[in-house]
Amino acid sequence: AEKFGFGKTATAEEIAGWDIDIRPDGLGLPPGEGSVSEGEALYEQLCATCHGLFGEGEGRWPVLAGGKGTLTEERPTKTVGSYWPYASTLFDYIRRAMPFTAPRSLTDEQVYHITAYVLYLNEIVDDEFVLTHENLAQIEMPNKDGFFVDPRPDAQNTRCMKDCADPKTMKIEGTLKGITPVGHFIEGADAPAASHEGQEELEREK
């Protein structure tokens, strides 16, 4: 088909500024390197308030380290070390989105340092390790083989119309009480109940 010809050709420089993505094979990594030791200082200064000194997560902020071997447990802890299949994802995510309140504020070098340190917190590299654009793709993550392509549809229901279940063995479990926001069921409390702050207040009053 004939092209519309709208838009302008992107220059290499324009692309370079926005092309921040990294792939498992290392494609997209900027040249550079970073060490666990320099990463420690940066992490403690920029990340630890939320994610904890050891990646254990402060309060309700995400846990970054630990949890190995918990994936089959009742309450799995999914972290960089226990769950993530590729180290590239860590570099990519820190560079695109962290620290939370100041995304895209780190230099590439800082991202190398901090990535190295988070890998160290997860016992994937040792404290002497220097992460580079050349060795990142070679890092083997503990859960690298933990993923397979979605096989759904998996559950096979049929369109049964009669005697589809046995009423005698049926078990009916009610709702866990006290966990849903119910502020808006209270007369006159509608608008505040919709917000985090308003809701918390209402919950406290209960």
Binding site: E14, G17, W18, F100, T101, A102
Partner: peptide
């Protein structure tokens, strides 16, 4: 582009 817009650097 190539600059990062202001809205990409804040919450």
């Amino acid at each position: 582009p190539p600059m990062e817009p202001t809205w990409g650097k804040m919450l």
